[in-house]
């Protein structure tokens, strides 16, 4: 589904990704781990299409086509979802309105009719119940005054409504207490299907106790320096990131 080849990217003239390659197939869950500054979030932003991150070399192919030539909104309509590390507060745009606009943008792209208001509400309430969210959140401003946990749940709610082919969840576990972490993980697990790929970007192993990855990759200085199965995450937890850096340099 996603093939990244020798990706180089910079922001403000500083190189962040330095030759990253990664293949993600449908049905797989990949965890990208690494120390702060290793390029994890940059990778997520580049895939989503943030224009401040300039790709200087390499390629990204999604569903067999060049991804990098698409605008962020085109990528989203084509099934890419980025769960933000810091979800943006947008007072004055209510949650339901954004969800509906996002769903309809995708449906239009797929040549479908706009979603029926009743059907939308039913679906939203169902998904919110799964995530332990109060339906009142639908009528609040997007992330406005939400706690850290509420914001992350809201990201997963958007993912659940948009049903992406490829979801990249950037530090979805950061700032969550254990209950919120469990709820978010349950939400993500319920969205695991053979057609969908999920990339978890995380600093800590903790999230992976609840969402079991098929592959774990360790990022250091803009490159994947080790890949393995879930046991790699445990090894990392045990030995720390210095171990990876040494392994990469040695």
């Amino acid at each position: 589904m996603l093939e990244i080849e020798n990706l180089h990217s910079q922001i403000g003239g500083t190189d962040i990704l330095r030759g990253l390659s990664l293949n993600v197939n449908a049905g797989e869950v990949h965890a990208i781990m690494g120390p702060n500054g290793s390029g994890k979030s940059t990778l997520a932003q580049v895939i989503a299409g943030h224009e401040e991150y300039v790709v200087t070399d390499g390629s990204v192919t999604y569903k067999g086509a060049d991804l990098l030539s698409l605008d962020p909104e085109e990528r989203a309509r084509d099934g890419i979802f980025l769960g933000f590390q810091y979800p943006v507060e947008i007072p004055g745009v209510n949650n339901a309105y954004l969800l509906k606009a996002a769903m309809n943008a995708k449906r239009k792209h797929l040549g479908l009719e706009e979603i029926d208001a009743f059907e939308f509400l039913k679906l939203a309430k169902e998904r919110m119940a799964m995530l332990g969210m109060d339906p009142k959140f639908l009528n609040r401003g997007v992330n406005e005054g939400f706690s850290g946990g509420e914001k992350k749940r809201n990201e997963i709610l958007q993912m659940a409504m948009l049903e992406p082919s490829l979801a990249i969840l950037d530090e979805t576990d950061s700032g969550l207490d254990i209950d919120a972490l469990k709820a978010v993980a349950e939400g993500v697990n319920s969205l695991r299907t053979p057609e969908r790929a999920i990339v978890l970007v995380t600093h800590y192993q903790r999230l992976l106790d609840y969402i079991e990855p098929d592959f774990v990759h360790v990022l250091s200085e803009g490159r994947i320096v080790r890949s393995g199965d879930k046991s790699l995450a445990l090894e990392l937890e045990d030995k720390g990131y210095d171990w990876v850096r040494e392994a990469a340099n040695g």
């Binding site: 989503a48 299409g49 943030h50 224009e51 605008d71 962020p72 909104e73 990528r75 989203a76 309509r77 979802f81 980025l82 933000f84 979800p87 943006v88 947008i90 954004l98 606009a101 996002a102 943008a105 995708k106 792209h109 958007q158 948009l162």
Partner: peptide, 12 residues
């Protein structure tokens, strides 16, 4: 905020 909306499929 604009990028956030775009990342949800909403054009600029």
């Amino acid at each position: 905020a604009l990028f956030y909306l775009q990342s949800r499929g909403i054009d600029k």
